[in-house]
């Protein structure tokens, strides 16, 4: 702990965030895209906890609590949307869901 600095945690969080964003950009399967979004959220919570710990304040940690709550609600609604979309169009590939393009 003594030798692990804030920078290390932020670096890890940043890399995880970038990995998640990469997934969002390159993946076609909406479910995987959705998981990548969750990974980005988790990376952000890691940064928040690190800030909270290193600044010796509880607020960041409480914020993480809310992030987890919101993420849970969001996953429920998002997955329901994906299922509804699949029922209607028969696909979860973002490349085929381009009705709004033209």
């Amino acid at each position: 702990m003594e030798h692990t600095t804030l920078a290390h945690h932020l670096l890890l969080a940043g890399l995880l965030f970038a990995a998640g964003l990469t997934g969002v950009i390159i993946r076609r399967n909406l479910l995987v895209v959705y998981m990548c979004l969750e990974l980005m959220l988790a990376a952000a919570t890691l940064a928040l906890v690190a800030f909270s710990r290193f600044n010796n304040t509880m607020d960041g940690a409480v914020l993480v609590f809310f992030v987890i709550t919101v993420a849970a609600a969001e996953v429920a609604v998002g997955l329901a949307l994906i299922v509804a979309l699949y029922r209607r169009t028969g696909t979860v590939s973002s490349d085929q869901l381009n009705t709004l393009c033209d």
Binding site: L21, R27, D95
Partner: peptide, 14 residues
């Protein structure tokens, strides 16, 4: 920009 692909939009967004 107007490729109609969500992934390209996500990339530009990033």
């Amino acid at each position: 920009f107007h490729t109609g692909s969500a992934r390209v939009n996500a990339a530009w967004f990033a």
